[in-house]
Amino acid sequence: MTIVDALFSAFAIPFMGRALVVMLVLAVVAGVVGVLVNLRGLEFISDGLTHAVFPGLAIGLAVGGASGLIPGAAIAALAGALALTWLDRAGVTSDAAIAIVLTAAFSIGVIVVSKSSDYAGELEALLFGRVLTIPPDQVLPLVAVSGVALVAVVVTLKQQLFRAFDARGSRAAGDSALVLDLVLNAAIALVVVAAASTVGTLLVLALLIVPGAVARLVTMRLWWLFPVAAGFAAVAAWLGLAAGFAVSVGAGVDVPAGATIVAVFVLGYALVLAVAQVAGWVRGSGVGRSGFEPLPPASDAPRPARTGARRPAAPLEHAARARRAGEER
């Protein structure tokens, strides 16, 4: 098998073509939503939602078979979004509270799945996804779920960014924090639903978090974050599928495609991080806000430059920093 076969010809095969369509749509939407997750520091809440979806997937599978996956996951995810939004506004959004919710949800899912006759097989499919075996009649629902998430975010995008930057200012300007949080958490939940059916619940988080973190490394221009994150996610999804195909068919090693996709996401992040470090060193100032962009010339007593030793933040560091920013819910 040649590289061209893996990168292009493989996708002429129907199941690979379906996987590519779903993953490209999902990657673009997850990239856009993921930028907001990054800016708001909602990584751990997103993790909670990925686990909250698990019992929905399990119950959906038990009740309706494969066609019950998306409805089951959607109900569980939206219930999770409501619960986490409520916890957040009630002021009990401690990491412990989220951890309790997500582990409780996960245990319910495991109990439900354990009643299945094919316990191991079902569990593996739910945890690691089944991107290469997506039935043709599930492509449209997955694209639709992703589309709803994208529309929800795009319609509220100005206000979401305002809230991410200045929560109190956003509320003072008349924005409803409750509505904005519900919309964003629901959008995250819908991405989780679509992704859980493809890359599985354990790997969903990479799709939501890595593209936004990459975009923060690449650019400090607000509106460029979204195309950069979406573009990175789309390319990584394509290369991940191709890698999975090459390893499984070319090398004869059976590897879940969801895992290769996420591996490419993480490798991509590591590569961008390394390039950003080098770019910072070349400029002689370490890594600045973005590894690639020099600061504009100062013309009026700028605040002291960041220390040269500063390094770009890892995805979860952005979350911690955003929480420290004193955001008012």
Partner: peptide, 15 residues
């Protein structure tokens, strides 16, 4: 409303 600027995240990528 004019808040105190120190309350805002200086790392937020916005012009």
């Amino acid at each position: 409303f004019l808040p105190q600027s120190a309350e805002l995240d200086a790392d937020f990528p916005i012009s």
